[in-house]
């Protein structure tokens, strides 16, 4: 069969470029986190994990990513359910409302939030009119601003992941539960949620890893006083030019995320017997 040599020829350019442009740079960069001029060293890793300043950055990153992911679950799962069970037209409409922001540049969306959250922005004006805040109130440079902006940036990933799983759930299972006397809320709790759980968990992991590693939105909305690990990597890489330290922080970030995935797959395996 001559499909084999042809398949090799078809896949070779892609594999070659991916090795040269992706695997090699990423691997070389990560190895720089534990390699100094004098060879192997933990110097850069220790510089991060022993400095209270950087530990604070790490804690803020985890905390914000956790809040963002939990909000995304609370908001995204109901929306995905409405999309999965709604009429075709409603689904298409909502799908466009989810894909349009997803496919719009992150700088553009963040700019929109800067206008809404900033001084004299919509939120500040509204709160001022209600007499809740003083003039010149601004949400910018706060962790709240980062959470609001980031939820909008990553929510589409959550919705699409959960939707993919929910569309494969048989709606007749819910009907069966209802016929057997289950209330609507009961059928959500006993049929839909368990069925959609794999999607919810993978959506959570995806959104968590995205929010823990984003820097454009946190830097613009949170400012220099509220750095996250990703922003600190960007600083070290482009402003202070400490590449080994930037690489070490990337290594820590990546290991943290991999540890999370690993724990999850272990737990999933245990749960499935």
């Amino acid at each position: 069969m001559d499909r084999y040599p042809q398949s090799v020829a078809l896949i070779a350019p892609g594999v070659a470029i991916m090795i040269a442009a992706f695997a090699v740079p990423v691997a070389m960069m990560l190895s720089m986190g534990i390699h100094g001029d004098q060879g192997f060293t933990f110097e850069y890793i220790l510089a991060f994990v022993t400095d209270p300043f950087y530990l604070g950055i790490g804690w803020r990153t985890v905390k914000l990513a956790l809040i963002i992911s939990v909000v995304c679950v609370l908001v995204g799962v109901p929306l995905a359910y409405v999309m999965a069970r709604g009429s075709r037209r409603l689904r298409t409409f909502l799908l466009i409302c989810v894909t349009l922001p997803l496919m719009t540049s992150v700088v553009v969306r963040t700019f929109g939030w800067m206008v809404i959250l900033g001084r004299n922005g919509l939120i500040a004006d509204m709160l001022f009119d209600l007499g809740l805040v003083r003039r010149n109130f601004s949400l910018m440079q706060t962790e709240t601003a980062i959470v609001i902006g980031m939820v909008q940036v990553v929510l589409p990933f959550m919705v699409l992941t959960v939707l993919g799983v929910m569309q494969r759930l048989d709606p007749r299972l819910e009907e069966a539960a209802r016929v057997m006397g289950c209330t609507f809320v009961g059928s959500l709790r006993r049929v839909v949620l368990p069925g959609a759980m794999p999607g919810i968990v993978s959506g959570f992991l995806l959104v968590f890893s995205l929010s823990a590693s984003y820097f454009v939105t946190p830097m613009l909305l949170g400012g220099a006083r509220l750095p996250t690990v990703a922003a600190s990597i960007y600083e070290a890489a482009t402003k202070t030019l400490e590449w080994n330290f930037a690489a070490a922080q990337s290594l820590i970030l990546l290991c943290g995320l991999l540890l999370l995935l690993f724990t999850y797959s272990l737990a999933a395996r245990k749960a499935n017997g």
């Binding site: 991916m18 992706f22 740079p25 070389m28 960069m29 590693s213 482009t238 930037a246 990337s250």
Partner: peptide, 19 residues
């Protein structure tokens, strides 16, 4: 091939810059 979707793009950016 699908790894770049899952891997944070900050890591690709830093890798390309340094290397």
């Amino acid at each position: 091939f699908f790894a770049p979707i899952i891997l944070p793009s900050i890591i690709l950016g830093l890798g390309l810059l340094i290397v």
